[in-house]
Write a protein that binds this DNA or RNA. Structure first.
Lengths: 342, 342
DNA sequence: TTTTGGCACTCTAGACCATAGAGTGCTAAA
DNA sequence: TTTAGCACTCTATGGTCTAGAGTGCCAAAA
C-alpha cells in the first residue's frame, strides 16, 4: 500500500462520508488529487478493490469503502478533527451546570452528544456500585414500607423499598441509619466484608428484620448496574441518515436502542480509552451496518461508565472520536474532582 | 344518520383499522353486511362521504374514515374491548413488583403499555410536588457540596445539589434535617406558607446559608414536574405501522417523542378520565396523522400523572382505551393505597 | 515503466407506456 | 328501495427505452 493508494482511500472515504454517494475516479481527480488523471486513479482503485479496501455497489457505480477500508482509515489515515471552541463550550457549560448530579448529567450528555455527532448517543452512568458510600438513610413511607437510600461519592443515588412485618417509627429508623453510617461511610462496596457485615448486624440486633434486608441489598445484586442508568438520545437523528431511508434497515437498530438491557450489555465492560467497532466487528446482527464509538470513563483506573455514539458505518469517525473522547474525559475529570474534594 | 349507515361506518372503520387498506363496498358486503349488495352499500358510502365521515384516497380506491368518522366511531359506535385475563395479569404483576418505586414503576408501565398496544407509550410519573413530605435529608458529598433529598408519600424522590461557601459536618446536617423534618413532615408543598417558612428559617438561623437554599428549593421552581419524570417506550413500534413506511412521515413524530419537555407539555394538565385526541385535534402539526389516548391518574381528586399511547389515527381505539384506562386505574389504586397506609 | 486518452461496455435511475384489477357512479330494471 | 350491469377512473405493476455515470482495458505518450 503506497502513499498514493492511501491518499485515494482517504479521499474516497472522506468524500463518501460527507456525500453518501459512491465516489468515482473523476470526482477524486477533480476534488482531491488534481495532479492525477481519472484513468490513473481508476487503476489504483481497481487494486484497492482487489485488496479489499473498497467495494462497488454495482459495476457502473463509484467506489465505497469496505469495512476493511474504514478500519484502515481509522487506524492509519484519519486526521484528528478537534472540537470547535463553541462545541467545547457547550459541553463544558452543560457539565458544570449538572456537576454532582450524575443522572441528570448523563442524560444531558447523551442529548448533547447526539446533537453534536448527529447520531444516536448512549450514556451508561455510574451506578452507586462505583463510588464509596457517603450516606445511608432510612425513611418511613407507610406503616410497613421503608425506603432505603444510598448516596455515593460520585453523586449516584439508589433507593429501594423495604417491606417490614413490624412497623418502625422514624426515630427507630434514624437510629438504624446512624449506625449504618457510622460503620459504612467512606467504604466502597468491595470493602463490605462478611466480617464487617456480621459486626453491623450484631449491633443492629434490635432491628434484625430491617437490618438483614438492608444489608442484603447493600451486599448483593441489589446494588448493580441497572437499566435506569442507561440514557439514550438522538434516535431521530438515525432516521436522517440516507442508509436508513428504507425503514426496514432502521427498525432492528431502533429496537436495540430502545432496549436498556441490551445496551447495558453492549456498552459496558470496556477498558478506558476509545473503542471503535465497525460494522460486523459488532457481533450483534442488528449492527451489521452500524459503527459504535465508545469510551469508558472513571478515575483511579476504575471504569465507572461508558459514553458512545451509534451511527451508520458511513460515519464521521474523526469527529465522533474527538467528541466521545472529549466528553468522556470531561466526565472523568468531574468524578475525579468530586473524589478529591471530600 | 340511520342504523345502516352506522353499521357501514363501523364496518369500514374496523376493517380499515385492522388491514390498513381502503375498504370497498364489495368487502363490506362480503365480510360484514352480507344481506346487502355492494351497490346498496356504495350508495350509503357515497352519502357518508358527502357528510364527511368517509374519505377516498383517490377515485377508484375504497373508503377510509375521516377524522370526523373516527370521532363518531369513538363517541358512538365503538364497542368495549376488555383486556384478556393474560393482559391484566401481566400488568398487575408488573405493578405489584414495583409497588412504591414510582420511577421504576412508570418506566415499566410505559414498556408494557407500548407492548400491549403496539404503539408508542408515554408515562408522566408524579413528581415530588404531588405528595406530602415524608422525609428530608441532607447528606455531605464533599467539602462544599450538600445533597438534599426529599421523599414524598407517593414514593417519589427528588435530589438536588446545594453548594455552600462554608462547609458543614454531617452532624450539622443531621441537625438541620431533623429540624426540617419536625416542621415539614406530613405537609404537602401547597401547605408551605410564607409564615411557616419564616418560622423554620428562624430556627435554622445558625445555618442560614444552607437553610435559605434548601427552603428556596422546596418552595420555588426547584420542585416541579421535571423531564426526568417522562418515560417513553415503543418508539420502534411506530415504525411497524404502514402509514410510516415513508420515513419522512415518522420523523417529526419521533423528534417529538424524544423531547421530554414537549411531551411534558403535551400530556400534562388534563383532568382525570380518558382523553382521546384524533389527528388534528392535536394542535401540534407533527401529530396531524396521529391520535393520542391518555388518562390522568391520581387520587382524592388530584391529578398526579398521565399515561397514554401515541399511534396513527388508524388505531385500535377500543383496545387502546381499555388498556390506558385499566393501567391508569391501577396506578391510581397503588397511590391511594400508599396514602392510606401511612 | 508509468501515466493518460480513448473507447466500448455495464448498470441504474427515470421516463414512458400498456395492462390488469379494484372500485366507483349512474341508470334502468326488479 | 334495492340491485344488476356497465362504463369509467385511477393505481400499481411490469416492460422497454434512454441518458448518464462509471468502469476496464488497450494503445499511445511521457
Amino acid at each position: 500500500m503506497n502513499t498514493r493508494k492511501k491518499e485515494i482511500l482517504q479521499a474516497v472515504t472522506e468524500d463518501y462520508v460527507s456525500t453518501a454517494e459512491p465516489v468515482g475516479s473523476r470526482t477524486i481527480s477533480r476534488k482531491y488529487l488534481t495532479e492525477l488523471s481519472p484513468a490513473t486513479i481508476r487503476n489504483e482503485m481497481a487494486d484497492l478493490e482487489y485488496e479489499g479496501y473498497l467495494e462497488q455497489p454495482h459495476t457502473s457505480a463509484g467506489r465505497v469503502p469496505s469495512e476493511k477500508g474504514y478500519r484502515f482509515y481509522v487506524d492509519t489515515l484519519m486526521r484528528d478533527k478537534p472540537l470547535t471552541q463553541e462545541e467545547m463550550g457547550k459541553v463544558l457549560q452543560e457539565y458544570s451546570k449538572r456537576r454532582g448530579e450524575i443522572q441528570a448529567l448523563s442524560r444531558a450528555a447523551a442529548k448533547i452528544l447526539a446533537e453534536l455527532a448527529n447520531c444516536a448517543a448512549v450514556v451508561i452512568s455510574p451506578g452507586v456500585q462505583c463510588g464509596s458510600i457517603k450516606h445511608i438513610q432510612m425513611a418511613a413511607i407507610s406503616n410497613d414500607d421503608i425506603m432505603m437510600i444510598v448516596i455515593t461519592s460520585t453523586g449516584a443515588l439508589e433507593h429501594r423499598l423495604i417491606r417490614l412485618r413490624n412497623s418502625l417509627s422514624q426515630n427507630d429508623l434514624d437510629v438504624v441509619s446512624a449506625i449504618l453510617n457510622r460503620h459504612l461511610r467512606g467504604l466502597s462496596f468491595a470493602d463490605l466484608t462478611r466480617q464487617l457485615i456480621r459486626a453491623v448486624k450484631a449491633e443492629l440486633s434490635a432491628y434484625s428484620e430491617l437490618a438483614s434486608q438492608a444489608l442484603e441489598i447493600l451486599t448483593s445484586s441489589g446494588i448493580c448496574p441497572s437499566e435506569e442508568s442507561v440514557h439514550t438520545d438522538g434516535i431521530a437523528n438515525f432516521l436522517e441518515q440516507p442508509e436508513f431511508k428504507q425503514i426496514e434497515r432502521a427498525r432492528p437498530v431502533l429496537r436495540l436502542l430502545e432496549s436498556q438491557s441490551h445496551l447495558l450489555n453492549l456498552m459496558s465492560g470496556y477498558r478506558t480509552g476509545i473503542t471503535v467497532r465497525i460494522g460486523s466487528e459488532n457481533t450483534l446482527e442488528e449492527l451489521r451496518d452500524c459503527s459504535i464509538i465508545s469510551a469508558s470513563y472513571g478515575h483511579a483506573g476504575k471504569v465507572m461508565g461508558t459514553i458512545g455514539v451509534v451511527g451508520p458505518t458511513r460515519m464521521d469517525y474523526s469527529k465522533a472520536i474527538s467528541l466521545v473522547r472529549f466528553m468522556a474525559e470531561g466526565i472523568s475529570e468531574l468524578l475525579e474532582r468530586a473524589s478529591f474534594e471530600r
